[in-house]
Deep mutational scan, measured.
Amino acid sequence: DAPDEFRDPLMDTLMTDPVRLPSGTIMDRSIILRHLLNSPTDPFNRQTLTESMLEPVPELKEQIQAWMR
Rank of each mutant, 00 (worst) to 15 (best):
T41A: 06
T13P: 01
A66M: 15
M53Y: 05
T16N: 10
S30K: 13
Q63G: 03
Q47V: 10
E55Y: 08
M27P: 01
D28C: 08
L10K: 05
E59R: 11
P18Y: 02
R34P: 02
P3E: 04
Q65K: 12
I26T: 05
D1F: 14
A2Y: 15
P18C: 07
D4V: 15
E51F: 09
R46I: 07
M68S: 09
R46G: 15
D28A: 01
T25M: 15
G24S: 04
S52Y: 11
S23D: 07
R20V: 06
M11I: 07
R46D: 14
T41G: 05
D4Q: 15
L49C: 07
L33T: 09
T50E: 10
M27T: 04
N38F: 14
L49Q: 00
E55K: 12
I26H: 03
F44T: 05
E55G: 05
I26V: 11
E62Y: 13
V19S: 01
G24W: 03
A2K: 05
T13V: 13
A2W: 14
M68L: 15
M68A: 11
D42R: 09
G24M: 05
D17L: 04
L36N: 00
F6I: 03
I31Q: 06
S23Q: 03
H35M: 11
L21V: 02
D42S: 03
E55D: 09
R29A: 07
P18T: 01
K61E: 06
M27H: 05
S23C: 07
D4A: 15
A2C: 14
Q65G: 08
D1Y: 14
E5C: 13
P18S: 01
G24L: 04
I31M: 06
M27S: 03
T48N: 12
E59V: 09
P22V: 04
N45K: 05
M15P: 00
T50I: 10
L14K: 01
R20G: 01
L21K: 00
T16M: 13
N38Y: 14
I64F: 01
M11W: 09
T48Q: 12
L37W: 10
T25E: 09
M15A: 03
P9T: 04
T13W: 08
P18I: 03
D1G: 13
E5I: 13
L21W: 04
D28W: 06
T25P: 07
D17S: 05
D8H: 05
G24Q: 04
K61P: 01
P43A: 04
D8G: 03
M11D: 10
R46M: 15
R29F: 08
E62L: 13
L36T: 01
Q47M: 12
S23K: 01
L33R: 08
D17Y: 06
V19R: 00
L36V: 05
D42Y: 03
M11C: 15
E62P: 01
K61T: 06
P43T: 02
D17P: 02
E62A: 15
P9N: 05
